[in-house]
Amino acid sequence: MSLRDLLILYAVLGIACAVAIYRSSTESRPRAAMAAALALPLWPLWAPVALTSSRSRASSTWAGDSDARSPGARSPVSEAAIRVEAALREGVEACAGTSLESLLPRAAAARIAAEVKRASERHAELTAVLGREGFDLGAADKRVIALEKAGSSARSIATARLHLENVRRLVALRDRDARALDELADLVQALRTQLTLARFAGSSVEGVGGIVSEVWARVEGLGAALGSDDVPIDDEA
């Protein structure tokens, strides 16, 4: 095999990798095109990463969660985020090049994925915070009871109650994020199924439109909740 043959083979494989990366990407079109273009000259290094990176975990998912650092361990929330991303990718692929494409364009899928990632990261941060010493709900509760039994000063008891209330609110935020992400994952999976069904069975666009609207409402709710809760707890209390 001559150098020329080798270069042609390299270029053909590069083009194949670029197409695969572009088609499987859930990012916006320009970003997907950039990722695909990078694969043309650098496919031996870039393609294995770009094509399988959706299986990689988000950076802060495991922050502070030492038990979960063992290989293969995943939290329900990160599982939900992975389900959302996979379902979005399949949904985009299912409606690519059809009349349904406008219902779930690549850019919209990228936005949903970004919101989900943000919520997942926030959940991981909250989990990490609540795993620290001094953020244990049971211990905070016991502390209040102990101070009351010991007949401590009203100021001490009030401070302990404030701490307990703050920890309760953090736990509630974490649990709410987990629920919201889990429900969103189910909904996006249903959307993917419906898009696939609509593509092959020719269902009406209106039927798909309903579930798309529901997904958007949940995503907007997720984003709004994240924005409003970015205020420090101490300032709110």
Binding site: A50, R55, S56, A58, S59, W62
Partner: peptide
């Protein structure tokens, strides 16, 4: 640690490249 634990590999690979 991120590479070993398969976290953020895409961003690390792209930036490093």
């Amino acid at each position: 640690a991120c590479c070993r634990e398969d976290r953020d590999t895409r961003a690390i690979a792209l930036t490093s490249l």
